[in-house]
Nucleic acid binder design. Sequence first.
RNA 1: GGUCCGGUAGCUCAACUGGAUAGAGCAUCAGAUUUCUAAUCUGACGGUUCGGGGUUCGAUUCCCUGCCGGAUCACCA
Length: 595
Amino acid sequence: MSPDHILKTEIQKALSSLFGQSTDQFQLQPTNQEFEGSHTLVCFPLTKISRKNPEETAKLIGDYLVAGSGVVERFNVVKGFLNLVLKDSVWVDVFRGIYANADYGRLPDNGQEVMVEYSSPNTNKPLHLGHLRNNFLGYSVAELFKANGYKVHKVQIINDRGIHICKSMAAWKLFGNGETPENSGLKGDHLVGKYYVIFDKTYKAQISELMNNGLTEDEAGKQAPIMVMAVDMLRKWEQKDEDTVALWKMMNSWVYKGFEATYARMGVDFEKLYYESDTYLLGKEEVLKGLGKDVFFKKDDGSIWVDLTSDGLDQKVLLRSDGTSVYMTQDIGTAILRFRDFPKIAGQVYTVGNEQEYHFKVLFLILKKLGFEWAKRCFHLSYGMVDLPTGKMKSREGTVVDADELMQEMVDEAEKQTRAIGKIGDWEEKEAKELFEMIGLGALKFFLLKVDPKKRMLFDPNESIQLQGFTGPFIQYTHARIRAIVRKAESMDITVSDDDLKSIVSLEPAERDALNQLSLFETRLKEAAKEYSPAVIANYAFDLAKEYNKFYQNIPIFSEADPSKLKFRIAFSRAVADTIRKAMGLLGITVPDRM
RNA sequence: GGUCCGGUAGCUCAACUGGAUAGAGCAUCAGAUUUCUAAUCUGACGGUUCGGGGUUCGAUUCCCUGCCGGAUCACCA
């Protein structure tokens, strides 16, 4: 039972007893630091039922709670704000509940299922910084839903088909000389990406050459030999030409192997992969069905459209005049297929950048028009672009930061800084490597997740590797220090029972603050899922670590003479460490026992 | 041009959906402490919340208007 919950019940009792009517329309918020108390009741809205001014209303409720509720120690009123000080016994009881509950921070199964899509890369180049935000975000939101009692299905759609991969294929055929990941030592996705870049360079050179020969830019773009080749490959692929399909399969398999390694290091996983090459025909069928039901219309050239002007949007093409499908068509098919594969899911979450907001608005609207009632339970988890201090970062421009390289740099930096501090001199090499990995990736993940997903954010490589402040490593370090305390207690054979905790009658202010923070975990957890925002959890973890550090600074645990207090503080430390570990786990971050 | 986001301390971000004197981290300056892991803690400094109107007990938050930045409006994905 959380303190919030207890107080709300008591306040409702007070209201009906004092004013003859109750309401749940009141705000209970954290008390500002400058005032005494942990919870504040905002009394302005209550003047309607109290028919007194805010101060009097607050005082009446305060007096009632002190006299009758048994949970409020004292109170103060500032303007219309009623600041409540809870009895220490309440905090102790709250803590006993948390300590006894191994599942604290994991809400009971609610019987619902949800699907989360994330990552969904193209197969012509390696993952970059933007993908990192996508993957960490998607993974974390999936974990948040799990902790809120949902069964979660993590999936992605792999855009394995289309002109982009044909470009890499064409360049490899022309300039590859049989290069493979095995004989070059290059990671598969990087190898294919290399040829995508070669394509681009060659293409540009050919265009300018053709333009020098008098062609317009448009003509040159279409006639450039390497582009002609790529388009031809796409056509052949759709006709299932044996050689083309074989080349496509080979190069895709290189990419998949490369992606697997990247995902493994990121610590993300998927239950099921959807491939565009398997699903793109399905969308086409559904569009044709919709044409029969008058949802869509056909133009004279044979192309098929949907008219969304009555919904304030434009017309949108769904099948080209040559009968081939576009991006939207495929997404229609994939969505339908997923609800067929997982009929019990309550909804679907698409983790995709905010440049595609219009696309998803249209997609969900079309699905609704096609009569799928689940369309309203599809949600676009939209996130902002990641900028670099030097300028914008976008895959079309040359300034991409490669995901594999960045992760390695973070781990290298973690190693450099950790070795410089010199606490791991006697560690096994293997253990040390694991630690650098935890810190490097923890820093990266925390930095990308601490910002509201909707917002565009700045990734500053220099700042991100700072191991102080609002960072993952700061929290990891706090955890390691707490674990040291717990280890020491274990070596002293100190055990804690519920009776030990029960005997505590008073708390230090620093304990109360940290305990208050600890008790907020499940509230934050619900908020985070509701808002699809791991940032809520990142902030929570940071606040908890900070509060514990204050406690740690002020209270010398092992010089405590009173054995029950000593035990309480050890139990408390253990609970904080556990909660930090759980909260960070929701962000996909592991925390070390020592560092 | 239409639509949708965003604009908060020098910098990076918060502000529980309308609540108190707008908070953290970094940076800067001053201090504590050398332990239960100092990768810590305590202070100080820092604000016309882009400008201007409106709504009410009360606005960073809601409405109108102007300015700035971004995204999007393809028979690309």
